[in-house]
């Protein structure tokens, strides 16, 4: 059990390292750098900068050095908790991100919880009453949920919010709380704004998870231990909930691993549409501006959180499945 855990943590650290290299390299990949983007902006505004000025900017930001030196400096600083300066915002990256990272996490976790809460009963129902009318309806809705892009759903919901409720359903806070310091009232305000983004971001995952749960449970329902449970005198309902559902729960725990990145990347565009103060819009802007320290930090932090999410799912799996707990395998 401890070996398994140590193995998982080791793997997580390795993953984080790979993520850091990849995020740094990917940011460097497009032609040009922050200075060339900056010069282009200047040119648009009608002013120009000389080649010498550009070069001094590059030296200032360390862009003239080889990539691996830049990477080493970046990592070295990051380990010390210093994420560097945002070139675009001219402020420390940590300041620019602020509590957007925490809000991203809150929205993501809310979306995953929404996914679970919806997918569990629907998956169970669809398997136990396979080929019933409701099963077909859920299947249809599921494919719809998969096929509709989440930003479109966000737009539609916004539209109905305006037309029917005459309210702006976007954002995560009411205007009076947006810049207020954290308080209980602000947290409550946040909780009230969460359902819409959770729905938008969680719908595709819900559809996927319903299919997974249904397929798994159908397999488990045919296992002899279900007959054993019924033959003991358990009611069908209790027998199904206690045994096959419990065994079919494993994929639910592992679902964090794929839901997490899916929801985070989905949230980039959805956050723009719903004007959510998450890191999504920030990342987009940073990437466009080739603001590498900001973009790199965001990608890196999301990577770390994903690894933590996967670790949590491993822990849940260990708790759920004695075969993993005792032997480290399924």
């Amino acid at each position: 059990m401890l070996t398994y855990l140590a193995q998982r943590i080791g793997l997580g650290i390795l993953t984080i390292w790979v993520v850091s290299v990849l995020s740094f390299v990917i940011i460097q990949l497009p032609p040009g750098d922050y200075v060339s983007t900056y010069l282009a902006q200047l040119a648009e505004q009608g002013s120009t900068a000389s080649a010498a000025e550009a070069e001094s900017l590059r030296v200032e930001y360390g862009l003239d050095q080889p990539v691996y030196v830049q990477y080493a400096k970046w990592v070295f600083q990051m380990v010390q908790g210093n994420f560097g300066m945002s070139l675009d915002w001219k402020r420390p990256v940590a300041d620019v991100i602020g509590d957007r990272l925490a809000l991203t996490m809150i929205v993501t976790v809310a979306a995953i919880l929404f996914t679970w809460i919806l997918a569990l009963p629907i998956g169970i129902y669809s398997a136990v009453r396979q080929y019933s009318v409701a099963d077909y309806i859920f299947t249809f809705l599921g494919f719809l949920g998969l096929a509709v892009p989440s930003f479109l759903l966000a737009l539609v919901l916004m539209y109905f919010g305006f037309v029917v409720l005459n309210a702006n359903i976007g954002g995560l806070f009411s205007p009076e709380y947006a810049d207020a310091p954290w308080s209980l009232a602000k947290a409550w305000d946040l909780a009230q704004h969460l359902p819409i983004p959770a729905l938008v971001l969680g719908l595709a995952g819900t559809a996927q998870l319903v299919r997974i749960m249904r397929a798994n449970l159908l397999d488990e329902l045919r296992k002899p231990y279900v007959i054993t449970a019924l033959a003991k005198g358990l009611s069908e309902r209790r027998a199904i909930l206690k045994y096959p559902v419990r065994v079919a729960l494993n994929p639910f725990a592992s679902s964090i691993a794929f839901l997490f990145p899916q929801v985070v990347s989905g949230s980039i565009i959805v956050s723009l549409v719903l004007s959510l103060p998450t890191v999504g819009p920030l990342l987009l802007r940073a990437l466009l501006a080739q603001d590498m320290f900001l973009a790199g930090t965001i990608v890196m932090l999301i990577g770390v959180l994903t690894v933590i999410g996967i670790l949590v799912s491993d822990l849940i799996l260990m708790w759920l499945d004695p075969r993993i707990r005792l032997y480290g395998r399924r």
């Binding site: 231990y225 065994v247 759920l320």
Partner: peptide, 12 residues
């Protein structure tokens, strides 16, 4: 019955 391997739930 026959299946001694699978007649018990593996997680209980």
């Amino acid at each position: 019955f026959q299946e001694p391997m699978t007649s018990f739930s593996p997680v209980h």
